[in-house]
């Protein structure tokens, strides 16, 4: 079943075509990787999918519903979770409270003025934190976490609305190699168990070739290749603009 369908979206920033006529779709339970050189337009694509940026043209459909140009708030309510390339969490709160706020928003319990916030959805928050391996750090301040742990917290927040589509922008950047694979395996399991469609970008080829079902390659805003791991690895154009010799990326 197709969760997300993207049809010919484009975006320019003052003359620079950041994304040009990109189309693809993601099915339930599928892990789709979007890779490409720095500045290829991957994050811009993500921003258009979750409403951060409105596309200049093209259509984005989520579970059959046109969501082009909706606000991030609406899109989150329709079941899209996202992690950011530059992490964005609430520094004055603990790890658990970060997730609790997301849960409060998801369950529409924000406009409550009396009952203390810690009494809401604590168990559910701990459950999500346990899933991403952050249970022990639940009472630490989010502002002092190491980078890799922040990424995990981001994932827990993104899962709080039980999303149909999960967008992960460089989810493992800055993490230790073993943890990268572990985190992406986790995402992979979530995807297949709950039928979540996952779209992610990565510069770590171990991760990309290890977990992606399908790979899209973006270069200067345009899709230049699409296929499974072996097909992408042997694509001469992808090698030239992105993969290189593989000497510093594990031979991929």
């Amino acid at each position: 079943m197709t969760i997300l369908n993207v049809a010919g979206i484009s975006k320019s920033f003052g003359g620079v075509r950041a994304v040009a006529d990109v189309s693809f779709s993601v099915a339930a339970g599928e892990m789709l990787a979007l890779i490409g050189p720095n500045g290829a337009g991957k994050s811009t694509c993500f921003n258009m999918l979750n409403g951060q940026t409105a596309p200049d043209s093209g259509r984005v459909t989520l579970q059959g519903r046109d969501i082009t140009g909706l606000s991030p708030r609406r899109i989150w309510r329709l079941g899209v979770g996202r992690t950011f390339q530059i992490t964005a969490t609430f520094a004055s709160m603990t790890v658990r409270e970060n997730v609790q706020v997301a849960l409060l928003a998801h369950h529409r319990r924000v406009w409550r003025f009396l009952r203390p916030a810690f009494a809401w959805f604590g168990a559910e928050a701990d459950g999500l934190l346990a899933q991403v391996g952050m249970a022990e750090q639940a009472s630490r301040a989010a502002g002092v976490l190491a980078y890799g742990d922040l990424k995990r917290l981001e994932l827990a927040i993104a899962l709080a609305n039980a999303p149909a589509l999960l967008l992960m922008d460089e989810p493992t950047a800055g993490m230790a190699p073993s943890e990268r694979v572990a985190l992406m395996r986790l995402a992979r399991d979530l995807a297949s168990q709950r039928g979540i469609a996952v779209l992610f970008t990565e510069h770590d080829m171990d991760v990309v070739f290890g977990v992606a079902d399908r790979i899209l390659v973006l270069n200067r805003g345009e899709l230049i290749a699409e296929g499974d791991g072996p097909a992408i690895r042997s694509d001469a154009r992808v090698r030239a603009v992105y993969l290189g010799s593989g000497a510093t990326s594990g031979g991929h």
Partner: peptide, 16 residues
């Protein structure tokens, strides 16, 4: 400090 983070593999090669 982590010069290769977030960089495309070709660039990481150049960096090396």
């Amino acid at each position: 400090d982590e010069p290769s983070e977030g960089l495309a593999p070709v660039i990481v090669e150049e960096m090396a």
